[in-house]
């Protein structure tokens, strides 16, 4: 398996793909912001937000189930919110005596719990849609236009470029370790925990050195092409009329969702 298999961009030529990356980033952040602003239990607004997401997904030609399938990444975190069910505020719905403690789920608590889940689920899907329809380098360009400091965007660009190279290197190291991790029947194998940690730590150290030396070679390659400390790239994005239309449309939609949430 090659590391770049987990690059989530899906090549298409849809209306969403063609939008300026700035517009997509702003809409995605606005949408997530709007979810955070919606009160607990505003189900109609959540439904409207979901509908908006479905329309966007459909326009992106990725298939309606695309974001849905990938949205499970945030699920494990839902555990954290379970305790919200037993909110001290609101009417108790039941009382469970566990011997050492009595748990009482309340109506407010249950509504809160599900609201958190829905907010998170919608937001994650929007983020998935964003990266599935936008090449990562274009997102970096969007950051630059939005005045994220140059040194930070350059670091992010390097990170993106070399993440795949280094992850492949990690795979090779792990494979080399596993290939030699033999066990004999009847013998306890695998060594002591401390030793295993030391092996892993040495791998981290090894990886660090290789990365460090690589950065020196990259620096040489940059210098030999004229780099003097200022990183220059061309950033050829232009906001056209359609980008503005979509941005305004999305803002109106978000406003509608907000108002719906408070009716």
């Amino acid at each position: 398996m090659h590391a770049h298999a987990f690059d989530q961009y899906q090549a298409q030529n849809s209306r969403i793909h063609r939008l300026d990356p700035r517009v997509k980033l702003l809409i995605a952040v606005g949408y997530i912001l709007s979810n955070a602003l919606l009160p607990d239990g505003s189900w109609a607004a959540f439904a409207l937000a979901w509908l908006a997401l479905l329309v966007a997904t459909d326009l992106s030609q990725l298939g309606l189930a695309f974001t849905l399938k990938r949205s499970v990444v945030a699920l494990p975190f839902a555990l954290v919110a379970v305790s919200a069910i037993f909110s001290p505020v609101g009417e108790p719905l039941a009382e469970w005596d566990l011997g050492f403690v009595t748990l009482a789920p309340t109506d407010v608590g249950v509504i809160r719990f599900f609201s958190i889940l829905v907010r998170s689920w919608l937001s994650v899907q929007m983020a998935i849609l964003l990266v599935a329809t936008t090449q990562f380098p274009d997102l970096i360009h969007a950051f630059e236009h939005l005045r994220v400091p140059r040194s930070l965007t350059t670091i992010i660009a390097f990170l993106y470029r070399y993440l795949f190279v280094l992850v492949d290197e990690v795979y090779r190291m792990l494979r080399a370790r596993d290939a030699r991790s033999a066990g004999l029947p009847g013998q306890k194998h695998g060594g002591k925990l401390l030793w295993r940690v030391k092996v892993t730590g040495s791998m981290a150290g090894q990886l660090f050195l290789r990365s460090y030396e690589r950065s020196e070679r990259i620096y040489n390659a940059m210098v030999s092409r004229g780099y003097t400390g200022h990183f220059r790239t061309l950033n050829p994005h232009d906001l056209n009329r359609r980008d503005w239309q979509v941005l305004i449309l999305a803002l109106v939609l978000i406003a509608m969702i907000q108002v719906t949430g408070r009716l």
Binding site: A157, V165, I218, T233
Partner: peptide
């Protein structure tokens, strides 16, 4: 540095930008 074009052995060191365009444009821009 403009007269001498140096191509390193490992292209992963030489190609340090995310896209091909950015990389080829790097020298002329600088």
């Amino acid at each position: 540095r403009a007269l001498v074009g140096l191509v390193f052995q490992n292209p992963d060191d030489q190609l340090f930008s995310p896209t091909v365009f950015d990389d080829v444009a790097f020298g002329p821009l600088h």
